[in-house]
Amino acid sequence: MPHDHHDHLSPSGHPYRPDNDHPLTYWQQMEIAVRELLIEKGVTTAAEISAQIDAMDARSPTDGAKVVARAWTDPAFREALFADASAATREMGFDIGPMRLIALENTAEVHNVVVCTLCSCYPRNLLGLPPDWYKSRAYRARTVKEPRKVLAEFGVDLPDGTTVRVHDSTADMRYVVIPMRPEGTEGLDEEALAALVTRDSMIGTGLAKAP
């Protein structure tokens, strides 16, 4: 199969990726320099930096999925979440810090989608680090202009009658989408429901999975 689109895959079937052993770039040298200066100036310590990386690595969309599943099953929590998502998620152990978190409810009438046109603000306390596409120029530029087309590229084809609302994050405000609960999930418990909640469904570029 020499001329097909698998040419860029390795024999193991995975795409070739550059190793991290190329000579350091100017910006990588700057990272080292800034980090060491911050340690020398007493702003932080090597241990604190490691701990921060570990805490970041520990966060993932499964945290957000727990919040969504609870909102689907616990009416009092649902009310609290839409009233003050920062406080409601903090109570579950997902502290967003001083920022304001707003939960957006997707319904049959309204579909919400989140973008950050200026950089990459993202509800990291619930979803971990943003995916590369969320930070891409294409997603940030087009989502505010032609959201239906962008959503279609993600496989989300909405009926013409559905209102699409695009929410542009700010430095002090984060959005999380609460997707619609899929049909046929009446008998499922919170854990089984959480397994249906994808990362993209909480950004608005996807829907919750069918059971």
Partner: peptide
């Protein structure tokens, strides 16, 4: 940026390198 023309949204993703995670951590801490 917001509203300007652009091509398809890239679907590739990558694991963050240690130096990238460190930049992120330095930002949060500072």
């Amino acid at each position: 940026m917001g509203g300007t023309a652009a091509g398809p949204v890239p679907d590739a993703s990558h694991d963050f390198a240690l130096w990238e995670k460190r930049v992120d951590a330095l930002l949060v801490i500072a």
